[in-house]
Amino acid sequence: MKAKKTTGLLVVVLVVIALIVASVVSYNGIISKEAEVESQWANVESKLQRRYDLVPNLVNAVKGSMAHEEKVLTSITEARTKMAGAKSVKDVSTANTAMEGALSQLLVVMENYPELKSNENVKTLMTQLEGSENRISVERDRYNTAVKEYNVTIKKFPKSIFAKMAGFDQKVFFEADKEAESAPVVDLEN
């Protein structure tokens, strides 16, 4: 009888220990995935900041030659202001779409100014901007991959139980704004 009690107690203790170990492993796994998402977001923000810093130099380089294209330059300035004020992933995504649209307009307008395309400062800035855009794209993809892995982790059983208990919520993907589906329109007649 005593042996049955001891065996039963031992089984209960082993089950409790297994649950504790599973909880710790699950929690630590989720924390690691969350840290990866945060790290990737920081990478996205650093690349967006690089572009954000390049834009005023580009605008200043072309401003003198494009004085009558004030609308395009204004849209770039407004987009840059949106980027500066964006805090959440959704806000940054929306501001990023505005910035991409404004820069696209600038590129279209620059086609009408051959002297700008041959200007060394403008060429250098455009090359740097192109590099920034590529880096942003890569980091955005890496961020979205990290978000997907994190979201899957907190949804899979048994980690989903621990995720809910610990208050882990899904992360938001960096997605293009709905406006990004249509190309920007540049009116060179006005």
Rank of each mutant, 00 (worst) to 15 (best):
G101Y: 04
M83D: 05
G101S: 15
S75N: 13
A95H: 05
A86Y: 02
G85Y: 07
K82T: 01
S104Y: 03
V92Y: 11
L106C: 09
G101P: 02
E78D: 14
L106T: 10
T81C: 02
Y113G: 03
K90P: 00
D91W: 02
V89D: 13
L103Y: 06
A102M: 10
A84V: 03
G101D: 14
P114D: 14
K90C: 05
A95I: 05
E100A: 12
E115P: 00
S93M: 02
N96H: 09
I76D: 07
T81Q: 11
A95T: 11
A98P: 06
T97W: 08
A86P: 04
L116V: 12
I76V: 11
V89W: 10
T97G: 07
M99D: 09
Y113K: 05
N119E: 05
S93V: 02
A86Q: 09
S118Q: 13
T81V: 06
I76H: 05
D91C: 08
A98D: 15
I76M: 11
V108W: 09
K82P: 00
A79K: 03
L103M: 15
A98W: 05
V92Q: 13
V109L: 08
L103C: 08
V92H: 15
K82Y: 05
N119L: 10
S88Y: 01
K90H: 08
K117T: 07
V89G: 10
A102T: 01
L103D: 08
Q105G: 04
L106A: 08
N119F: 08
M83W: 07
L107M: 12
A95C: 07
S104P: 00
T74A: 10
I76L: 14
M110I: 13
A84G: 13
G85I: 02
Y113A: 08
R80C: 06
S88A: 10
V92R: 15
Y113V: 04
T97N: 10
V92K: 15
M99Q: 06
G85D: 13
R80H: 07
M99N: 06
T94W: 00
N112T: 15
K117V: 08
M110C: 06
L107P: 00
Q105N: 12
Q105H: 07
T81W: 00
S88L: 03
A98T: 11
V109P: 02
E100I: 01
S118H: 02
E111R: 14
K90T: 12
A95E: 10
K90G: 04
T81P: 00
A98I: 02
S93C: 02
G101R: 11
K90I: 05
L107G: 11
V108L: 09
E111G: 11
A84P: 00
D91I: 08
T97H: 04
